[in-house]
Design a protein around this nucleic acid. Structure first.
Lengths: 231, 231
DNA sequence: TCAAAAGTGTTCACCGTACACCCATGG
DNA sequence: CCATGGGTGTACGGTGAACACTTTTGA
């Protein structure tokens, strides 16, 4: 600590992380909120957040926060943006770094249900969360859309086996627009990351729709190389 | 300060901003470094940085830092990413938020030269800066490339009047690849944001090349709507 | 038998890409 | 008169977009 003359103790601030967590099910795109357990704004809906500790970096903090509130682990997270308005948290100066995560609702819902402070909302019907969380969510949605058009997406959000209808609905709910069935399927198939299974899912039609899964290796490769999807 | 029970004083940290500043001239893409004036790493090259103060947000801090070190004002800046490795700054725990800026070298070089701790480097020949600044720069370059392909770019980096050759060189040095003259010009013209002037610039050829400027209104509109440039 | 979703190809317009020659001028 | 960079157009292939009918089967 020899050099602290240029490092002014007075200007230290609290740093938080807030996680925007997206999920998907039959109803469409969902977002996970928690009921805030302490004042101020106790009882209101909020993104999952927590403070950065001295012994961890931001990514670790985001992972810890997610785990401690939901029990979820090994979730892909990505840093988004830092929010620093002086009064964004009324209690004390706090900077917050937002992270976003995609989770497979089907796979993790059991774990989640244990904690009833957490609740999924249909994205379009979610209540207004506290502080500047709505801003964070809007930026996250933009990022999610960009990702959907430049990288394969679905493995993180869909059940292991899914129908083309589900995949298309996922994209539709992210992009918030109707897509042409044939064009969507043709394009997605041309990525060569899907494996068509023998099985059919008959829950949504008499005829039954073939199930698909992702070829994980090819999926990861495509993810790295990226593409330019026009839909 | 009634609610500080959940807000632990102990975990406060210093927050810094670091600015990645790009410029452009005949030699190509440039980056601005400063010679660090205090220990540790005194005398080494560094991004322009400084600490966030209690009375400002991050964007204000970035603007202030840029101004105090270079005298430059009204520069477009954009937040990039936050760096939080525990030992990234050897003196004390510091989180740094990177910002990037594009500046018009021609317009501002006079002001800049006053401060001789600041120096432009050809991007490809820049020395290795301190701490994790190289990482920051790499991320900034990726962002700059993405911007170049999805938004018009040049107004911030070129002199008011410029030739097609200069514009093409700008793109070539950002994307680090040769571009086809005709295709580039055709595509850029199709954006309908350039105004062809009567004047010619004769410094680089006998025949002389027509000068252009940006139609500021159309430029800003295109900037908002964005596009998808393939080059 | 009929309702509801699954599945499947083609055509057209547009855009990206590759490519080569003449022009104007100062030295 | 010639060397240097400036300026211009076309042809081809690939991709995005629009579009409709037949199949299956449980109720």
């Amino acid at each position: 600590m020899t050099y602290l003359n240029h490092y002014n103790e007075e200007d230290k601030v609290l740093v938080a992380v807030d996680c925007i967590i997206f999920g998907f099910d039959e109803e469409g795109l969902k977002i996970l909120f928690v009921k805030r357990g302490f004042e101020p704004e106790k009882g209101k809906w909020s993104l999952m957040g927590g403070f950065l500790k001295r012994e961890e970096n931001l990514a670790e903090a985001a992972t810890r926060v997610l785990f401690s509130l939901t029990g979820l682990q090994d979730i892909y997270m990505e840093q988004l943006y830092s929010y620093s308005e002086i009064d964004r948290d009324p209690v004390t100066r706090t900077i917050s770094v937002s992270y976003f995560a995609l989770i497979n609702k089907n796979k993790y819902d059991l774990k989640l249900n244990i904690k009833n402070e957490a609740q999924w909302f249909k994205f379009s019907e979610a209540p207004l969360p506290i502080f500047d969380h709505q801003q964070m969510i809007e930026k996250a949605l933009i990022r999610l859309r960009r990702k959907a058009l430049s990288t394969p997406l679905g493995f993180e959000l869909l059940p292991e086996k899914f129908t083309m209808r589900q995949l298309k609905r996922l994209y539709e709910s992210i992009l918030n627009q109707k897509l042409d069935k044939r064009n969507f399927i043709n394009k997605f198939n041309s990525l060569d990351i899907l494996v068509k299974l023998e099985e059919k899912d008959k829950t949504s039609s008499k005829k039954g729709a073939f199930l698909y899964k992702f070829d994980e290796k090819k999926y990861q490769l495509k993810k790295e190389e990226g593409f330019n999807f026009k839909l």
